[in-house]
Computed example of a mutant assay.
Amino acid sequence: MAAGAVLLISGVHDEEPPRPSARASSTSAHPAPPPTVRPLPPADPDRIRIAAIGVDAPMTRVGLDATGALRTPPPEEPGLAGWYGDGIAPGSAGTAVVTGHVDTPAGDPGVFYDLGALTEGSTIEIHRADRRTAVFTVHAIELYDKEQFPSKKVYGSSGRPELRLITCGGGYTKDTGYLGNVVVYATLTSVT
């Protein structure tokens, strides 16, 4: 991901939403396991599946806004996951980033509503335009305060094929929206 980019994913609601599963407290990020498969050549992702939380969603390319913040998919499409298209393709060497809404302004569930309920060992499948599916295994789930978001840790690359899923989470206020971000850390473990 571009150096110096910051994450700004915020939920803004007219009234307080229901508490989503992304409320989970931090599971400390253990180092990624050693790679078990070779990195894939670049190919755009088109679908994400996370069986453990019932996600089977289309993907779209997202970029950065004028301030360098990561954009999210359009709020009117809460079931869509966004891939940072100017970065690494999921399955290629480096850190690929996927974002999605936890909920809508009305409080209805978004694509990553249950992201905080994932556990270490859960799998994430990313179907790609080259007809391959990159399968990632979760090794950590963390909750960060937006004011102390560790960009280098989240976006930094180990050179291995890794994936970060990001959504809003933590506390919520009417004035500022969500106070934190849930980040899932996963590593490529197979290709089908």
Rank of each mutant, 00 (worst) to 15 (best):
E120G: 03
G159S: 11
D108Q: 09
D44F: 03
A134Q: 08
E147M: 12
A140G: 15
D46Y: 14
Y178A: 08
R164P: 05
E142A: 13
A117V: 13
R131K: 15
V135F: 12
V37M: 07
A129L: 10
E162D: 04
A3C: 01
P161G: 04
T104W: 03
D108L: 05
T192H: 15
L118A: 07
K174T: 14
G54K: 06
V111P: 01
P105M: 03
L188H: 09
I9K: 04
R131Y: 15
E162Q: 09
V102H: 08
Y113H: 15
G68Q: 01
G180N: 10
T36G: 15
S26A: 05
L163F: 05
R164W: 07
L143M: 08
P105A: 02
G85Y: 10
T95R: 11
R160Q: 08
M1W: 03
V191I: 10
A96P: 00
L8E: 15
F136Y: 11
Q148D: 02
A57Q: 07
V138S: 02
V138P: 00
S122E: 09
Y185S: 07
V183H: 00
R38M: 10
A129F: 09
E15I: 14
N181H: 11
I48M: 02
L143S: 11
E77I: 10
A32M: 09
T27R: 13
G107R: 03
T189L: 03
V37C: 08
P78M: 01
R71Y: 09
T192F: 10
R160N: 12
A117H: 05
D130T: 01
P73N: 00
G63Y: 12
D44Y: 02
I141T: 11
Y84K: 01
P39I: 10
D103F: 00
A186Y: 07
L8M: 14
G159R: 13
T67C: 04
S158H: 06
A57M: 01
P17I: 02
P161H: 05
M59R: 10
G121E: 11
S122V: 10
I124C: 00
V191S: 06
T133C: 05
L163S: 06
D46F: 11
A57W: 04
P34A: 08
I124W: 01
